[in-house]
């Protein structure tokens, strides 16, 4: 069975890297997956290929301009884009700031925060600008599939990847369909 290996990209935007930890949680099943997939661009490997990928697994929502640029790039690069985890799907915990203005958030942390000794709002040109609110992926690009959960169980990643590899429509069984 020498189907071509699926090229996979993974990234963490406004997330906590927990979904990536869950992806690693597949443990020895990675040995099985090693025959099916290849990680070509991911914080888990050293390569940063810009070539076309089959699947993009994107963790986290969008909280700054860099997140949005990257997401648009991933959408171009990947045939199938997957929103991974609660933050990618509805903004998650970072979206709690959506009830405040960006100015209020920055002031609360950098001017009036606990133990702040030299109050100033960071403005280095290197720092990506914060978006007005935290967005889920689907509000900026077309998302093909979603893996809910905080994080999605390792098994859910396995179900999705093996279905896509076999050319089946991915589905999640009941226990892998959790929002927490």
């Amino acid at each position: 069975m020498s189907k071509a290996k699926l090229k996979i990209l993974t990234s963490s935007l406004a997330g906590c890297f927990g979904c990536h930890m869950s992806l690693l949680d597949m443990d020895e099943r990675w040995l099985e997956l090693a025959d099916l997939v290849e990680l070509v661009r991911s914080p888990l490997v050293d390569t940063r290929s810009q070539s076309r990928c089959d699947i993009g697994l994107i963790e986290g929502g969008l909280c700054n301009e860099e997140n949005i640029h990257l997401l648009l790039e991933f959408r171009e690069q990947c045939k199938i884009l997957v929103a991974v985890g609660a933050c990618a799907i509805n903004g998650g915990v970072p979206a709690l700031r959506n009830r405040y203005s960006v100015a209020d958030c920055l002031e609360a942390v950098y001017l009036h925060g606990l133990n702040v000794t030299q109050p100033q709002i960071p403005s280095d040109a290197e720092l990506p600008l914060l978006t007005d609110k935290v967005y889920p992926l689907q509000e900026w690009v077309k998302v093909d599939y979603s893996l809910p959960g905080c994080p999605p169980p390792a098994d859910a990643f396995f179900q999705l990847i093996s279905a896509l590899h076999d050319g089946r429509e991915p589905d999640l069984n009941y226990v892998n369909r959790h929002f927490d």
């Binding site: 929103a83 799907i89 979206a95 889920p136 979603s146 893996l147 809910p148 589905d171 929002f179």
Partner: peptide, 15 residues
Amino acid sequence: AYELNMQEDHFQHLY
């Protein structure tokens, strides 16, 4: 939502 196999929110969030 689980019963109906909902996996994402589809619509724009009103927050």
